[in-house]
Design a protein around this nucleic acid. Structure first.
Lengths: 251, 251
DNA sequence: GAGCTTCTCACCTAGGTGATAAAA
DNA sequence: CTTTTTATCACCTAGGTGAGAAGC
């Protein structure tokens, strides 16, 4: 039967941590997954009846856009107040047991142990990586849900935000500027979030989502791709109505 | 132990109904609560150490504003696309067992069996009530959570929307225009949403939140209170910058 | 007419963009 | 000096308001 809650349960779940903003993605702190299945390939079109049960596969949504960024070296801005990723991290699933329950998670881990600098229009290694903050695991808020439910929609982690503020209390993912990172998806077959630490993770990695964290964009090609594709940056497009009148000079 | 999901479980929970908009408040359909505790009184200030365990009390947040509206006869606009309530339905809790888990719910039920009309600046009975759609029960999305977690914050149902569209697929609450309704809060001590239909409800009713559903405001006093207090209506305040230039005439 | 509903509008709130200047 | 970070801005997206015209 379900046992009563304990301090351990709650700190693990992180779902109701009162120090966190209610609108933030629920978070947990986990040990590394016990078992990993690494995938990095283009989506496969499924034939009718090809669906196999309990062999979950994950496809990166809009991977063509991710690939355009990856070609130049994707950069993600991190700010004190938190910044979303662009392109957004979205996944589609197949191969789940339609009736079983799964928990969908993601995290962002260091891609290597280097510090980088952008020099002469190129990213170059600039020494050993700085110490990292403990990484957070983000549970998709719809978790747990059945395979049927996960497979019927695009799984979107748009609420996840990046920050360089090591004292962040919003539950954002804390990264080091000028360091390279790799987002990952995880699927756990589990009825209950409390059972997560004792469950087997399947991990899905898409190389084209690798990025370098920056406090200001370094590569103009990346800036232009962001402006051209992010709806919130429409004001900076050539076709936009942006008035380029003289700017107010700060004190 | 936790049993596998069934069609019955899922239709009851409604949490992952794919026909519903993902951003809408999760809904369930329930039978009437087995047991009700009716409360309607001003908030009480708790002394240190006065907290008793597992005797949950609920207080209406900003009940002074609700009372201002109630004095004139609160009206809530209902539209096809869905309209929020104003003032917002917010609650504070005390007296919960800090370590036990609770589910927080609300619904809106008919206040009487009358149809109303606004005639000569007064609400008057205008016959028997029309047939009602089955009422939805809204689970607060943080459910289930511990007493500690519920008591540490204001519980807000701002995502709930009202509609007169009987074919609504967003999970909004469907009401009849010109009929009187009463919102209610419910607290259930339960670890698991699946156990809800077999659990005992405590129900909390605040008379000052009673309202008549309308498609357009009838009482100018209510309109003015909405304009003066709802931030989204700031454009209609006298102090606002609203240009009252000539209006476009629709074809 | 009179009563009620629907649609579009200007005007807001709320918050996600890169540019830019200034600070570190 | 160079490099990186921070704060503020105009400009967007997204969506919640009542007003008012039009529809029923």
């Amino acid at each position: 039967m379900l046992s009563g809650p304990s301090a351990m349960d709650l700190s693990f779940r992180g779902l109701f941590d009162p120090s966190l903003d209610a609108s933030a993605t629920p978070i947990i702190h986990t040990s590394p997954p016990e078992q990993s299945l690494i995938l990095c390939r283009p989506p496969k079109i499924l034939e009718e009846g090809e669906m196999t049960e309990d062999n979950p596969e994950v496809y990166l949504e809009s991977n063509d856009l991710w690939t355009q960024f990856h070609k130049y070296g994707t950069e993600m801005v991190i700010t004190k107040s938190g910044r979303r990723l662009f392109p957004p991290l979205k996944a589609r699933c197949t191969g789940m047991d339609r009736n079983a329950k799964y928990i969908f998670l993601m995290d962002i881990v260091t891609a290597d142990d280097c510090r980088y600098k952008f020099h002469k229009s190129r990213w170059m290694v600039a020494g050993k990586a700085d110490p990292e903050m403990p990484k957070r695991m983000s549970i998709h808020p719809d978790s747990p849900a059945t395979g049927e439910q996960w497979m019927s929609k695009v799984v979107n982690f748009h609420k996840l935000k990046l920050t360089n503020n090591i004292s962040d209390k919003h539950g954002f993912t804390i990264l080091n500027s000028m360091h390279k990172y790799q987002p990952r998806f995880h699927i756990v077959k589990a009825h209950d979030i409390l059972k997560l630490p004792f469950s087997t993770f399947r991990t899905y990695v898409f190389c084209e989502t690798e990025f370098i964290a920056v406090t200001a964009y370094q590569n103009d090609k990346i800036t232009q791709l962001k402006i051209d594709n992010n709806p919130f940056a429409k004001g900076f497009r050539e076709t936009g109505n942006r008035r380029r009148e003289k700017r107010h000079v700060f004190h």
